[in-house]
Nucleic acid binder design. Structure first.
Lengths: 118, 118
DNA sequence: CGCCTGACTCGACGTTCGTCAAGTAATTGC
DNA sequence: GCAATTACTTGACGAACGTCGAGTCAGGCG
């Protein structure tokens, strides 16, 4: 983990693509790369799609693990990365933790890489 | 390299986000993850932004290397990944190879992760 | 309380990744 | 043809990553 994630800089007005808007400096590049890396794994892509599919109700870890075919420990590890990148949110309800997508995080990521946004 | 990249499946009509559209199967998840991974590195993010900044003229490797502060060999390595993912295109002109962005690749990537596309 | 279940943390392992130095191709100019 | 320049390939090294088993923490329930 090269750096902490400030939950995707909700401070910065990321309307226009910072990437297509001009050369990005080293720090910004790292921030962008970290967010992309959070999604750059087949298991995390599948987890994200499953969480998006149940955006209303939320999904718990114990349901996700068999769905993607890995250990619960591994799912937990991946969910932490998605959480740190601000892409999902987990809320505890009894013994279960229900995960829901954080649409803002995904949209922000999209804006960063879209060459003809705005 | 777990799999060859068919230059981002220009065959598939990726209008609506395949990720938010429903659970993605293992193969599709791998394809998406590979494209995201192509951009999930700070050096490649900076290369992409530099190439986008000179979309008209194109940039050659020898100019990119000092701009990002790594060896030309390393830049070549990263450019290959961006090329394989269909994000940039390189055309040789004399001894130089000029790189230009492939907007379609970036837009397709964006569509894949956008939760409220369409 | 004691026990169980679900979620997470820790340590370890094998693999992949980013980087460079050195070597190889390709193209131009003398 | 030969030298020079630019781009790429190869091999190697260290760092980071994904995965798991085992252990730990937190909430229900008998």
């Amino acid at each position: 983990m090269p750096k902490a994630l400030p939950v995707l800089d909700t401070t910065a007005p990321v309307c226009c693509s910072p990437m297509a808007a001009g050369p990005v400096d080293e720090g910004a590049a790292l921030e962008i790369a970290l967010r992309l890396k959070a999604l750059a794994d087949p298991v995390r892509v599948r987890l994200m799609s499953l969480i998006l599919a149940e955006a209303e109700l939320g999904v718990c870890t114990c349901d996700l693990a068999p769905a993607v075919g890995v250990t619960e420990a591994t799912v937990s590890h991946h969910l932490k990365q998605l959480r740190d990148a601000g892409l999902v949110e987990g809320t505890r309800k009894g013994t279960n933790v229900y995960y829901r997508p954080n649409a803002d995080g995904l949209v922000a990521l999209c804006r960063v890489i879209d060459p003809d946004c705005c």
